[in-house]
Amino acid sequence: MSTVQTPKMAVGGYTILMPPGWDRIPLNSKSETQDAIKGIVDHAVKYLDPATPKEKVTEARLELHGRLNRAVADARRRNGVDVYLPVEPIHGFIAPASFLVSKVSPGLAAQASPSEIMSHLTEGFGPSEDITLDEVPGVRCQRSVPANPKEKDSVPSRQVNYVVPVPDSGDVSEWLIVSFTTLTPDGTPQEFLEILTELFDAVMTTFRWSAA
């Protein structure tokens, strides 16, 4: 595993150890975001058959570039700080999975308790269990998300969320949500889902806060 350190958040940042074959797209800087997307696209086309016609390579680049930009736009709508994606195939294919790190300020009344804020943030996230991230208590939630009938290419997915308050956030309540999502089209082996979920949980054991 290699250490990945994000840009600092307003009151602190974090470090995390990612497995080989995953890359990060930072979301706080447009130039850094586009540089990361270009790097992922350049890396991905290396796995195409050398005999692939140039026009097909160009089509593949444009299609992947478009998908990554759509993913970034969605992540920013969710207050994303970083997106992590698999960029190298495992057993011949790239896992349909991603990690999203978001920082949110719920904006609830000042008198709201941490437990009330937690309940608000995790509403609809599914069953939860207590966890800690680098000595900060929070919760882990897991749910199955059905396909969206309004979207042509939508498929079911599994989502795991870690939700914790950002330490030392002062008068402003700030929370970190780390979301893992993997697509689960019909026929997805259960053991494959469990392997990916266990990988995410293992990555989260390496999470550490860093000073602002």
Rank of each mutant, 00 (worst) to 15 (best):
S128K: 06
L64I: 04
W22E: 08
P53M: 01
V83C: 12
T33D: 03
C141V: 12
P189F: 03
I16Q: 01
E151H: 06
F207C: 11
Y14G: 01
K54I: 14
K152H: 15
V87C: 10
A44D: 11
E59I: 09
P53K: 07
D42K: 03
V101N: 04
R24V: 06
V172P: 02
D74C: 14
D42C: 05
D49F: 07
M18R: 03
R158S: 12
V101M: 02
P53I: 00
G80S: 09
K38W: 13
T122Y: 02
V172E: 03
T122N: 03
E135T: 13
E32L: 02
V136Q: 03
M204I: 09
V11E: 05
V57L: 00
V81G: 14
F207Q: 12
Y14V: 05
G138W: 06
V163M: 07
Q111C: 12
F192T: 05
V145Q: 08
V72R: 02
L196W: 00
R208S: 13
V104K: 00
T3Q: 01
A147R: 12
S115N: 10
L196Q: 04
D23F: 12
R140F: 12
M18F: 02
E55Q: 15
N161P: 01
A212Y: 09
E116R: 13
F99C: 06
E198N: 15
T122M: 05
A147H: 10
D82I: 02
S98Y: 08
S98T: 12
D82E: 03
N79P: 06
A75D: 00
P26S: 02
S119V: 15
M204L: 08
I177T: 12
E129M: 11
R24T: 00
F192E: 09
G187N: 00
K46D: 15
A71Q: 10
R67D: 03
S119W: 15
T52W: 05
V72A: 05
S105D: 01
K150N: 09
L100W: 02
V163R: 07
I25A: 06
T58P: 14
T188C: 05
R70F: 07
D168A: 12
V160C: 03
P114C: 04
I131F: 00
S31T: 11
D74T: 15
K54Q: 12
R208Y: 13
A211M: 10
E191G: 11
K150R: 08
S173A: 06
P7W: 07
I177V: 14
G107P: 07
V160H: 04
F99S: 08
V178L: 11
D134M: 03
I117C: 04
D82K: 01
G187D: 04
L121C: 06
A36K: 03
G138M: 00
V145E: 08
D74R: 15
K103P: 13
A112M: 13
L193K: 13
P149N: 06
E135A: 13
K8A: 12
I94C: 02
P127F: 07
V57E: 08
P20L: 13
F180G: 11
L176K: 03
T206C: 00
L121A: 03
G66W: 09
W209S: 06
L68G: 05
V178M: 11
I131W: 01
A44W: 09
D168S: 11
T205M: 10
G80V: 00
